[in-house]
Design a protein around this nucleic acid. Sequence first.
DNA 1: GTAGAGGCTGTACGTTCGTACAGGACGGTG
DNA 2: CACCGTCCTGTACGAACGTACAGCCTCTAC
Lengths: 179, 179
Amino acid sequence: MTTSGNGDDTRERILQAARALFAERGYAATSLADIASAVGLTKTAVAYHFHPKDRLATELIAPAAEDIVALLAIGGGRVFVTELVTFVVRHRAIIRLIMDDIRHADSAPPGSPGEAIRAFRDEIYNRLAGPDPDPARRVRTWTLLGALQYSVVETADLPEETVRKSLLAAALALWDSRG
Amino acid sequence: MTTSGNGDDTRERILQAARALFAERGYAATSLADIASAVGLTKTAVAYHFHPKDRLATELIAPAAEDIVALLAIGGGRVFVTELVTFVVRHRAIIRLIMDDIRHADSAPPGSPGEAIRAFRDEIYNRLAGPDPDPARRVRTWTLLGALQYSVVETADLPEETVRKSLLAAALALWDSRG
DNA sequence: GTAGAGGCTGTACGTTCGTACAGGACGGTG
DNA sequence: CACCGTCCTGTACGAACGTACAGCCTCTAC
């Protein structure tokens, strides 16, 4: 065994494996042992690099941060939907982390990264729903959000641009037809 | 304590609590202890009535069975989408069980109810996607399925008919605009 | 009144999870 | 060579899960 790279290399391999597994099974359903065996290590080795487990999700989500603030700089409306589609497709490998897993994970203490993610998610919803949404608008908003998440998660094997185009058309059709 | 009803009564109360909790947190994230404390019993009491845990999900899904076969009797197309919306809204409390939880649960042995649910789910997908779907069609199909599931799960507090109308409009807009 | 089934509790077991800790192999620096 | 920080392993712990089992209470049937 050449033990080729140093620690930074295995750190990166762990992140890569975790990203794939989290996208496929979700955060809670993926154990440290699963990630470890995917990289050829023990679970304690994974825990050594990422401690606690949350840190894995945190570091995976971090690169999307600047795209998030850029996205929130857009007020709303059709342009917002378009950019939201781009964002979701670009970060599709971690979209499940953002949309589903974090909020269900052992309820985040205030100030934690999980709290920020939840705030982001709520903000996205508010931008789409608008102020004081009536029941119809609420349904339509969740329809759009569900469409975005589900479609990127289930088509991870397709080229990014292919998914983006189809999804954009669908999202705009949904947006333009809302009551 | 009058110990009012007999066993059938508590059985029903357990089912009701489980349905609510499964809809809210999902199957895997809901423990027998959670259900038990919601009904005011111990987890062994719940296990006594429903054994193993799968049986809870099985009995909750069972009432939807005839609606499922009725739904699959429809060939496809716009009518199928309409009836699918009705089905999803009517059984929204257990739609998460059908769409998400069952397939992830400890991989079902052949012949088990979980296997049937997966087959149903796949069949729905095939009806919507059609034979040999291209990438665009695949994306559009998951978009529709995601829209259906997400919107009913997140609007459980709204009247059934309200959700149905809004969701139907959205689903048809999605369907009619597919490539 | 006595036997027995049904309903439920308490306890315990095995597994899996994330985590903690001690120790060993390795490589660079004094 | 000796030292030390980095990287990783082995082992172990507590918690939570579904499950198994023995016992008790209550109501019904005979």
